[in-house]
Write a protein that binds this DNA or RNA. Structure first.
Lengths: 235, 235
DNA sequence: ACATAAAATTAGGCGCGTCTAAAAATTTTT
DNA sequence: AAAAATTTTTAGACGCGCCTAATTTTATGT
């Protein structure tokens, strides 16, 4: 019992004091803007991502510096500290786990889950993310194909690609969709394709980019290039 | 498609514009304070329930009057309007559904769920409560034995009582616990008693109030009066 | 290198929800 | 019915997170 508690102190979920909702959103945005390049993030970029004003951003950046969640020097851009990065990853972990929950358990569709997860990601409880993770069977990817950070704050690389990029003869698993229109989602349902569905790419037609696939080792089906461009998969 | 949307307008979950978190808490508190008596609720009582200041309460009451969520005349106390009552019931519905989720699906214990549900009850989405309700199998009572308001805003009466009040020969179902100490919860686990467990009261011992019960039609077990006083049941 | 454009920062302000202190109204006590 | 106690209300203020407008700093173009 004591040992368990001890271990918990070192998992992401319980080691940080609660941030305000707004602070959490800043950390998340700085993380997302910074992950591509190692460049420092400008107030303007943050303001745009949050749909607010650069002047407001500067105010908040000062506060985040005080809390040691970011590094920031005047006119040099912001960067997460290790502490800030861990919190950002926790928010992202919570967001993506809730998205899986909403899609798989509550039967929401791909295009509805993001907005609700934006709210749910801020629920504070030291055990919640890990319990939800377990309940969902430790999913590795969210319904948009993005990797879910682990309890210890590690995030898998994104191997996701689109079906049309898969080589002939290879097999992949569906991790999400790009297009979330109901016509596409309904078509997927008809083909019995969902998250995790195994697809083998049998042949590509040079003429129009159509691809011939086998769904769950079943009979061959042909889908258009438009279809294949919008299905996110993971090899 | 259109018909479905139309119907939804008339269910509790989607018919109200979002309130602020604080407004929702005021409505909830006014509901809870008002349900016992039909008396009007004083600012002082509300302030105490919210652990804040009567002066703050008066400010908020004015705002709630403007929004037509309560009736309030100077120094006469507050009362929910029909609109306010419906919103309060929706918040309570969400709270209790999330409590069921946390206990049954995420393996939280009786004493941990309230605080998390206080946060989850404010998540805004027109479909969420109803989807969660369905996912949970339309539970009628939360883990504390309190009835869950329906999607249309009706709440069952509270029939709950304690095991020691059940008459000899009657059968009841567990709806919750009064004591949430881990020693009691562990004892319950050992006896294989959980939410919904069927218990028949076979005999009461006059000497010390011990009761002899059958759990799930199984063999007879004797439990103390202290035990029977702390188990909430529903006949 | 200098003028111009763009970005960052400061200054001052605002709405929300809270507070304290003081005044007004109501209720209770005698 | 008057005095005392309590409750309610007003007045004024504050922190948070945001805003606009003006200023300063940095980057860009010729």
């Amino acid at each position: 019992m004591y040992l368990l508690r001890f271990v918990y102190i070192y998992t992401m979920s319980s080691s940080f004091p609660a941030q305000t909702l707004s602070e959490e959103n800043y950390l998340k945005v700085i993380y997302h803007l910074g992950k591509e390049a190692t460049v420092k993030i400008s107030p303007t970029a943050i303001a745009e991502a949050l749909s607010n004003n650069p002047a407001s951003v500067v105010d908040m950046l000062k506060k985040l510096v005080d809390k040691k969640l970011i590094q920031y020097e005047k006119s040099k851009g912001a960067r997460l500290t290790e502490k800030g990065r861990k919190i950002a990853l926790l928010i992202i972990r919570r967001h993506r786990l809730w998205e899986v929950f909403l899609l798989e358990k509550l039967e929401y569709s791909w295009d509805e889950i993001h907005e609700i997860a934006e709210q749910l990601e801020h629920i504070q409880d030291p055990l919640l993310a890990d319990r939800l993770d377990k309940f969902l069977g430790f999913p590795q990817y969210d319904p948009h194909g993005d990797p879910i950070p682990t309890a210890s704050g590690e995030m898998a690389d994104i191997y996701k690609t689109i079906l049309s990029e898969v080589k002939e003869g290879n097999t992949c698993h569906v991790v999400g969709v790009k297009d979330t229109s109901s016509s596409f989602l309904q078509y997927l349902k008809k083909l019995d394709i969902g998250i995790g569905t195994k697809i083998s790419l049998d042949e590509k037609i040079p003429f129009d980019g159509s691809v011939i696939i086998s769904i769950k080792n079943g009979p061959k089906t042909t889908v258009s290039k438009i279809f294949a461009d919008n299905l996110l998969v993971h090899e």
